[in-house]
Design a protein around this nucleic acid. Sequence first.
DNA 1: TAGGTTCGTGGGTAGAAGTGGGTAATTATC
DNA 2: GATAATTACCCACTTCTACCCACGAACCTA
Lengths: 153, 153
Amino acid sequence: MDSTGNSFTGSYTYTLDAKGRINIPAKMRKALDPASDATFVATRGNDACITLYPATVWKQVEVKLLALDKGKPAIRHYIRNIVRHAEALQYDGQGRVPLPAGLIEYASITKSAEIVGMIDRIEIWNPESLKALETRLTDDSEALENIANEIDI
Amino acid sequence: MDSTGNSFTGSYTYTLDAKGRINIPAKMRKALDPASDATFVATRGNDACITLYPATVWKQVEVKLLALDKGKPAIRHYIRNIVRHAEALQYDGQGRVPLPAGLIEYASITKSAEIVGMIDRIEIWNPESLKALETRLTDDSEALENIANEIDI
DNA sequence: TAGGTTCGTGGGTAGAAGTGGGTAATTATC
DNA sequence: GATAATTACCCACTTCTACCCACGAACCTA
């Protein structure tokens, strides 16, 4: 049934409406594991973007975080800074999720947003930010080639 | 129903009213295990905050504390400092809990308070204290990177 | 190409959520 | 035992949000 095999691919430019909602591309909704119950967990990405994990994938992240030694202050800080910005979002009948204001600000998104598939997760970018990062990293073509050689696709 | 699957996430800035009550965010109330019977156990956090454990989780904390070697003075001290400030709080019809004055003082909370999800527990902070700790620990980015590499989210 | 269906986007509305305050019951104090 | 202080419970108001309906464009199908 799912030709994408439950992985998120492709890139779509959608608009954030006045209420801070954004549409999850239909193909990505179809690729979402039914066990996630139409729900993603949004949080800060490692780059300047919003990351959306399927609920089931996020569960695994939580398990990893809980296993850390909370006796150490640095670890508590690490957990707090991830979980603090995380919020579960279920999309409505039209396939939209309301993005928390804090995350919109973090990713500097205004009206237009680029939704990028990342296999097991989704990233939401300010199109300009993504382009800027892209050109900056593409210049470092040597590093890319090293990775390419390593995995041999 | 609750998509996060009974885990506490996100961060909310709410106000402490004149009676020392604070609202538990609706999403966190929904995430609370029904077996906890609308009850949290509040006590001093490891950091300068108030920690709220769901009643069921607190039970496990007690078990762990009991297992410690009470022959050592330092351990008795540690146990005493957690347990003596612990108080069970059930939220009212409006979803609010009365915070004990001693804990409010410990966390230096006045009017505004930041409620932070920590997966299996909740922390209540003075927003300034949290920000201060954050900038201090974020500076130690090396430690954070080590953790990040270790768990690979 | 024509028609039906899905998809992206906009907006309205009922109900829920956050906040403030009042009253009765309980506890403490003298 | 009477009075004062505290606590628990309820009511009320404002803001926000989840849910619903709607419309045009794009896509697919026959």
